[in-house]
Write a protein that binds this DNA or RNA. Structure first.
Lengths: 187, 187
DNA sequence: TTCTTTTTTAGACATTTGTCTAGTAGATAG
DNA sequence: CTATCTACTAGACAAATGTCTAAAAAAGAA
């Protein structure tokens, strides 16, 4: 059973509605380093991570700068591209083998029109995303790099264990060199 | 005529719906340095700036750190507080005398339930906010302080003329000292 | 295992940014 | 007009962070 199914059940969808929702998704598999979204191409899909981890990053001066990493049981999209239908500024690629339940923008609109409760679900999803990204931006402004790292240890310990430090560094908006310094200081 | 009325007309609302929407808002006036939202208090209002400018900031180590400044004809809220109904981390205060059309969360929910098209409007508002804040976070990670300042000159020249540099500095996530340095370098 | 590649650490030094402080200019109040 | 306050600039120095480089450690492949 797909995780996306459990998710929508837990949110309260049943019967025909649930079936219609699940039919709107399709499962796609990715091998390590496969691209889900490529810079310059418009991404018309919203994804729900079934398995694996997916890294968002942009290439700046030849280097990968990671914005975020999505893990199992979460929705994700290349926000700007998906919403405004413009070429994506960022890449999304699989950090390990994994799979994503994806829904096209067309199907999403169909669900929004046909299932009233789905609109409320989508509003909730947008609101939660807004809170998450607002809090993240807030941290970038208010906290020091060291404080952001400590917060990551507490709030996202799974990332620490699974993701190369170089990627974590750019999520913290610092260089790997500096993260190494912070780590040696803290221990 | 209130700007919020023009706004909802332009978005396509008419007749009873428009009237119902406008009745849900109430106009509040603020004098310079009045608080719209206070840290620690839950903010249950969404606002539409009619006149003036309103500064969001948090107090860190006794200093004001500005997150954003809202100007005329834009919606705003203390996002985290409004959506998740938790005490606000930030203050919002009037930089000059001004007025805001405000709608309570209760009234917002009422409109969402009673006017189907209002749900679509709200989805659009959330999507636009998400794009805006995502782009802003992106800039904080990818651009240097100098590049962020140059972008502000191009995209938000009105801020430059109206807002004290100390506030602009913290919007750029730097100190006034450093902004002064950047300004003298660029000219 | 052994070889190879990737990840992580860290030294040395450069650059960026912050802190503290003071001075100047402009605004405002009396 | 004078005194006071606020905004802005800037010098001197300190702290934070980046760059370049190399080596150790860990992970993966043969």
């Amino acid at each position: 059973m797909l995780k996306v199914e459990k998710y929508f059940e837990a949110v309260g969808f049943t019967g025909d509605d649930l079936e219609k929702i699940l039919n709107a998704f399709e499962l796609k598999k990715f091998k390590k380093n496969d691209f889900v979204v490529e810079e310059g191409k418009t991404s018309r899909y919203l994804g729900f991570v079934e398995t694996g981890m997916f890294q968002y990053y942009i290439v700046k001066d030849g280097e990968e700068r990671t914005n975020y990493v999505s893990i199992e049981n979460t929705f994700f999209a290349s926000v700007l591209s998906f919403i405004s239908e413009t070429p994506s500024l960022e890449n999304v690629k699989a950090l390990v083998d994994g799979s994503i339940s994806m829904i096209s923008k067309t199907n999403l609109k169909m669900l929004l029109n046909e299932i009233p409760a789905f609109k409320d679900f989508y509003i909730g999803l947008l609101e939660a995303s807004l809170c998450g990204i607002d809090a993240s931006r807030y941290d970038l402004i208010v906290l020091t790099a060291e404080q952001r790292y400590e917060k990551m240890i507490i709030n996202e310990p799974h990332l620490l264990q699974q993701i190369p430090l170089q990627h974590l560094a750019s999520m913290l908006a610092i260089t790997p060199r500096h993260l190494s310094r912070i780590r040696s200081k803290i221990r």
